[in-house]
Design a protein around this nucleic acid. Structure first.
Length: 477
DNA sequence: TGGGGTTAT
DNA sequence: ATAACCC
């Protein structure tokens, strides 16, 4: 058997990938017809072009509320809100029908919907656990899964789709059907290899949602498209518990369906404000704005990235998240103004964190304390101090026996006094403790040597011999 | 605006 | 250490 297609091309050759992909689609336009007589195995697949990826975005429906309804089925047919402090952070669809919105004030929500049942969702433990079960389930389909928050995942299905196409019998092609909605009601062309790939992606997405429901009892949406941006945008088109696939011809329709550039993931509050000053508010405004001026205002990196986003272009890969890079616990409050108060809150946060870190098995090598000071009208103001965790404390972390609380609290209070002058009046509204710089450890010798010792060729050593010197480490007192 | 997360500078 | 982004 002989392959009909080309080998994967070197990337970054200067040409536009999207155009290459379309050219390929044209060349292969009749491959489906050819397949009917010979089988499509070797003909369809060599289209391994970087722009013909198949990406799915999976987005759970009102995740916290779903977890609460699973915990307590009595809540299932009632309007339910999940509360953190004075906010309803999310709610089920019963509540939404009655006018409750995400991030609504509790008072406004109760006013709109007096029958609203509220549960406290400040402890994220069960949400976090269920979130990782979802990611692990998706990783069973394909290992390339990127988490986005607790309730969204991207999966790169490109290879899986390719394998399925290789398994396809020639007579199966003509009866293949898409699963779920097709964006913009576009009709599928079974002679177009890009359509075929996305169609197979939609079938895998349906299997993922089925597995989530059968194994975990969770419902959610999925969007299938050729990149992360588009997959994410299209996943929200049909909203609870449905899925949508975007075909390339409807890409411009999708991005122009956005009413404002702030709806493009990647354009956040700050960038949107900056663009507003430049008179840019619609997707079309951004598409047609001078790239040079944009680069001057936002820097070349942001400018080029968001302008590509405005055309629906996004070459960012799906990056496997793996285990978390950090663990943190925070608490917000109206007022904390004494050192004793702060110490008590920090001890609470730390106790929970130590349990989590113990469960994880890896060891954090850095600890950070974050505060928010009361200040009228400063939208974002957090300060932090961090330091290495002394090695003798790290060693004790896994073992529940020895008291690790005492030395950790001592360290955190030093960080606290480094940030807050406790001899002066202060007013904090948030405390957070974060463990990061996690290491697998038990790689004992080599890992430690690699970290603390660094080869030096510059000294008196003779050819081929290394000498070592200590890396600078800044152990605070 | 909560209680989390990530990466880039 | 901060600032931006995401949920």
């Amino acid at each position: 058997m002989e392959k009909l297609g080309v080998e994967p091309e070197e990337e970054g050759g200067g040409g536009d990938d999207e155009e290459d992909a379309e050219a390929w689609a044209m060349e292969l336009a009749d491959v489906g017809a050819a397949a009917s007589s010979q089988g499509i195995h070797d003909q369809v697949l060599p289209t391994r072009n970087s722009s013909s990826r198949v990406i799915v975005h999976v987005d759970l429906d009102c995740f916290y509320a779903q977890v609460e309804m699973i915990s307590n089925p009595e809540l299932k047919d009632k309007p339910l809100g999940v509360q953190q402090k004075y906010l309803v952070v999310t709610c089920n669809y019963e509540a939404r029908k009655l006018g409750v919105k995400k991030l609504m004030n509790v008072r406004d929500a109760k006013e709109k919907c007096p029958q609203l049942v509220l549960v406290n969702g400040e402890d994220l433990t069960r949400y976090r656990e269920m979130s990782y079960k979802v990611t692990e389930l998706l990783e069973e389909f394909s290992p390339v899964v990127e988490r986005l928050g607790f309730d969204e995942n991207f999966v790169d299905l490109t290879e899986m789709v390719e394998k399925r196409l290789q398994q396809l019998q020639s007579d199966e092609l003509s009866v293949m059907t898409v699963s779920g909605h097709v964006y913009n009601n576009q009709s599928i062309n079974l002679h177009d290899i890009l359509h075929i790939r996305l169609l197979v992606g939609s079938q895998i997405a349906a299997e993922m949602r089925e597995a989530m429901y059968n194994q975990l009892g969770l419902t959610g949406c999925a969007g299938v498209a050729s990149n992360k941006l588009l997959a994410k945008l299209v996943s929200g088109v049909f909203k609870p518990n449905q899925q949508t696939v975007l075909l390339p011809e409807s890409c411009q329709h999708l991005i122009h369906s956005l009413n404002h550039i702030k709806e493009i993931p990647g354009i956040g509050y700050k960038t949107a404000k900056c663009l507003e000053v430049l008179g840019i508010s619609s997707v079309h405004d951004l598409q047609t704005f001078s790239p040079k001026i944009l680069e001057k205002e936002l820097g070349i990196s942001v400018a080029q990235r968001i302008q590509k986003l405005s055309f629906g272009e996004d070459n960012s890969p799906v990056i496997p998240s793996g285990p978390p890079q950090s663990f943190s616990e925070e608490d917000s409050f109206k007022k904390c103004s004494s050192e004793v108060e702060a110490k008590n809150k920090i001890e609470e946060l730390l106790a929970s964190l130590l349990n989590r870190v113990c469960q994880d098995g890896r060891k954090p090598h850095t600890v950070r304390l974050i505060i928010r000071r009361y200040s009228s009208e400063k939208h974002y103001g957090r300060e932090s101090r961090q330091c290495p965790i002394p090695s003798h404390v790290i060693q004790k972390l896994g073992t529940g026996n020895y008291d690790v609380m005492t030395p950790m609290v001592d360290i955190l209070m030093k960080l606290f006094r480094n940030m807050v002058n406790v001899k002066m009046p202060f007013h904090l509204t948030l405390l957070s403790v974060c463990f990061c710089n996690l290491k697998a450890l038990n790689t004992a010798k080599k890992g430690l040597i690699d970290y603390y010792l660094t080869p030096s060729l510059s000294t008196t050593s003779r050819s081929g011999k290394h000498s070592f010197k200590m890396k600078d480490t800044h152990m605070e007192d």
